[in-house]
Design a binder for these strands. Structure first.
Lengths: 390, 390
DNA sequence: TTCTTTCATTGACGACGGAAAAGAAGGCAT
DNA sequence: ATGCCTTCTTTTCCGTCGTCAATGAAAGAA
């Protein structure tokens, strides 16, 4: 979180105002009274907090058209005007960067992706700037100002300082990305870990809205996990948290790139699945798509590999549930394309390995469009924008 | 947390006052300025918060006798007057109850334990009442009032409601223990899970003081874990949290009473160790004491069993570290008597299984006197006493 | 029309914490 | 000794925030 340039500031100067706004943001149109109830404030406080926000155009007011006629004065719903401001979210991977233009409600307006050929910070920065500029042009056409840029990078990221401490995929160490991007784009920049960014998006705009304790598990090339405890995203004292991918579920399992054996990722990560399918079936599948196709054609060996992956993921989730007791676990990720192949096994293994009431945790899935990661980045930018007032 | 009877109330009506008091409580005597710095308040606010607390006798003021003479006006240290109020903490196990009388600084003044023959809630309640009465007599002799009672029970406990939802060892279900104990003792009663209570004690008075993210791991008959994330003890949405004992570290391991294989507890719990030592060595050791003795005499088989237990615990801790990235892990428990037997293996396995920077987590041990569990219960009572003002 | 119900607003009020300045209590230098 | 300096502490003033309780507004119901 760093905001050198001044674009536009959010008029929520009090804790109550912030709380009111985020309540409306996460829980759709609400009456002022309902907002008060949810935010634990008095109705008067809400009225006062809402006024300047409506004045500045961030909130709008309107009756609920299709509401059943009820007794008493009709309610006036307060909602966020998504079109009041735009944000850019960019996810940087090892070989491409994905950018989205979202509104204040984190709805994607435009999505773009460009390949990345050079991982040098300066080259990546240039690509980010170009993409951001392109999206700003789109924003200009909509006639709405872009007021924040969020960047999501995998690895150890210090959001507070805006520094990428270490990113294995990009081979970066201590890159002050927020500062650099702020200089080239002139926007307030927020940098965060990709999984945490996705978790923020779920917390504010997704299946985690309103929950104080939940987990997001991403299945794909790597297996990641974002945790929300006591209503806040867990960052870890040393920058590491949510490393469900490197939880060991079988000490006798295959070796992982982290040096251990039987990590979840070493069994259920894309590379592991492809390698194992080749090994078991003898078919030289090139990637997950082919592996999935093989399994879908009914190949017993391939299906077995997916079942084992599901088992590993289910055990990993059970471990999270046993330790933290979240209300919900949201499974997402590119790997979800193969979800039918391991869904059952995930549930079975989870139910088996979850201890006592931990099994009551609501495990659900959520499709992950290719631009969802970038949307997560935008969500962090929105978060910073709203909190910048503090 | 429930306080039907009115004994005495704590005069901290503002958030700042609470924060100031807990800061002084956790960080020993401090100057007002230092308190302000640590609590994130202005010096003026501290002065104002401290006055009524001194007036009510909870805080005292005094110069630091053995301080090196420094420039400027000498500092006036503020400290908690431990003798201002007493608390009773009781840990209820399946076969005995342990009670302690502590002061406001959670220093143990008197400790007692009595065997428990009947696990029926009424019988247990009677024993608790008797023990509490006995300790109150001691308190009367000291001329200090007892202002709170804390009860620690293993299992699923709802602290907010003061209800023991389910305790396997006691075979209790939905026992409104706080209400019952409040009626018979006339004291405000706090009921909490035993491991969480111990964690509260560490957070306020032990190795967790000042940390916002740490874990307490208890090694003994069971393997438990208390977690503090974002400065608050994790309770779990469904009452379950910190079940490190049922994290599976080896799917091919021995069967656990929970139904799975290779849980940490099934490898490193007291019963598991005794059983395994018998199996490996052929010596029919009766309990952990004999098993430890055998290992200390150099029996290779027994030592191997302990090493394996250490490995399981180390892996379990690594899992916690990978998921939450705590600043510190505090290992404690009755099993610590055998610590020399598995310490090395815990460290090795932790270092091996911890991912990246998670290994930087400070893993330390802390001896656990027999009455420490009860002290944890007292700590929760102290916490409730201070917070009751809110 | 008037009452009832529910939602929303207003204005007075009190509490809380911060800023800044003054005060207090010592050492140190001249 | 006297005054200055440093550091800790207190005081006073003030702005902010959020609640309370009363009032207003907008419907349907009697």
């Amino acid at each position: 979180m760093r905001s050198i340039p001044h674009t536009e500031s959010f008029p929520a100067h009090t804790p109550a105002a912030s709380q009111v706004f985020t309540t409306v943001l996460s829980h759709g149109p609400l009456t002022r009274l309902e907002v008060a109830r949810r935010a634990g404030l008095s109705a008067a406080a809400v009225t006062k907090a809402v006024r300047p926000l409506i004045g500045a155009g961030y909130l709008t007011e309107g009756a609920d058209e299709d509401a059943p006629p009820a007794l008493g004065r009709p309610a006036n719903l307060v909602r966020v005007d998504g079109g009041r401001a735009l944000f850019i979210g960019v996810k940087v991977t090892g070989d491409e960067i994905i950018g989205v233009l979202t509104d204040l409600c984190c709805r994607i307006r435009v999505a773009r992706h460009v390949p990345l050929t050079d991982r040098d910070p300066r080259a990546v920065l240039a690509s980010i700037s170009d993409l951001a500029q392109e999206l700003r042009t789109e924003a200009d056409e909509l006639g709405i100002q872009v007021v924040g840029l969020g960047l999501a990078v995998s690895g150890d990221v210090d959001r507070g300082e805006g520094v990428v401490r270490y990113s294995p995929f990009l081979e970066w160490r201590d890159v002050p990305l927020a500062e650099l991007a702020a200089m080239t784009t002139g926007l307030p920049v927020t940098v965060d870990n990709d999984v945490r960014a996705l978790t923020v998006a779920e917390q504010w705009f997704g299946a985690g809205a309103g929950l104080t304790d939940f987990a997001v598990v991403t299945v794909g090339a790597g297996i990641g996990c974002g945790l929300v405890v006591h209503g806040r995203v867990v960052a870890g004292a040393h920058g590491v948290a949510g490393e469900i991918g490197h939880v060991v579920v079988d000490p006798a399992g295959p070796r992982c790139h982290c040096g251990n054996r039987g990590c979840v990722e070493a069994i259920a990560g894309d590379a592991a699945i492809v390698a194992r399918v080749r090994e078991v079936t003898g078919v030289q599948v090139a990637d997950t798509l082919e592996a999935v196709a093989l399994a879908h054609r009914g190949d017993a060996g391939a299906r077995e590999v997916y079942a084992r992956a599901g088992d590993a993921i289910g055990r990993g989730i059970a471990t999270v549930a046993n330790l933290l007791g979240p209300e919900r676990v949201i499974i997402s990720g590119e790997g979800l394309a193969a979800y039918d192949l391991f869904a059952e096994q995930i549930r079975d293994s989870f139910a088996e390995a979850a201890f006592g009431s931990a099994a009551r945790c609501d495990v659900r899935t959520r499709p992950l469009p290719f631009d969802e990661w970038a949307r997560g980045a935008a969500a962090t930018a929105i978060q910073s924008f709203i909190r910048a007032a503090d």
